[in-house]
Amino acid sequence: MDKERKKGHSPLSPEEIEKEKRQSRRFRRMGLITIGAVLFLIWVGSMVRALDAGMGCPDWPTCFGQVVPPTDVSQLPENYKEIYADRGYADHDFDPFKTWTEYVNRLTGTTIGLLIFLTLIFAWPYRKKDPSVWWLTVAAFILVGFNGWLGSVVVSSNLHPAMITTHMLMSWILVAVLIVAVTSSQRHLVSIEPSTVKSLKPVLYLAIFLTLVQVVLGTQVREQVDQIAAAAADYYQRDGWIAQIGSILKFHILNALLVVSVNIWLAFKTLQACQKPRVKMVANGLIIVVGLTFLLGLALYMFNLPHLLQPLHLLMASILFSLQVFLYAAIYYSNKPSPYQWHSEEG
């Protein structure tokens, strides 16, 4: 009987329903905080690269062999250049700003480790009644660990462009998994009518496909920029870099126009068809974010790749992808019956 009730096959008492609601709110809040933190980490990680601070800490998980990195060169061994010669310090001096920029990146990563652990704990009550939420959170937890290891690989590979790309793509997968987990647990708040789903689906799939192509093209542009930067004498003097990027940039720009058009089309279709306030908010967000991403990309092209705009461009693209994943999950779970009785009442 107790098992039946837990699975939602028999009515629950008001206290039990209230308890489930509390658990649901708790998971939603923690999940959203974690998603926000991962997006923030994507921005911080990109800032590290933009400020050329990736090798600010030449080892991992410690920084110059210390848990708290040095603030002055006097705190390092005299032969530190020799020790870290293979990490690019043979002809570079210690720079506390770069070291601490990278350290903040690592602290953010560690915080996400704690947040995802809490999210996992809060997902525990779902494991029997809604196992998809539990298993998606477990997957996110594993992905955080894996991506942490990838972060160490990025450092040990001396920031190889291909490794940075892999690290970034894994972060996006992590965000997507978390968003699907949270949306799945809150399907009563975001479910879309079946008639609307049918008209939204093709546009959404097209938008996601074009955005993914655009992201991959973007990573290739970034890899080219990394190579040009590595061959350049001055990292911050970027005149003429645009001209050195191959034809991939042209594809990136052309596809950007498609991405903007299709996403705006998707947003308007969603606004027309859907009355749920959260879904409408996401549709409005889609218009703003796709517009900002495009404008930032344009500014990067027009003004010789200002290094601080690159992280913002990436952040906006990440948010755009997150919104699309949310819409996808909302559509997907709209067709699935909820295991929670009170979902239908609140929905």
Binding site: M55, L150, V153, S156, N158, A162, M163, A230, A233
Partner: peptide, 24 residues
């Protein structure tokens, strides 16, 4: 499909070098 990246990740000291800015 990603063996090059995996190999690079597993053998960072063999496969990667720190770039020398501006040096051919």
């Amino acid at each position: 499909g990603f063996s090059d990246e995996i190999d690079r990740a597993l053998n960072p000291d063999l496969r990667n070098v720190p770039p020398k800015y501006g040096q051919p």
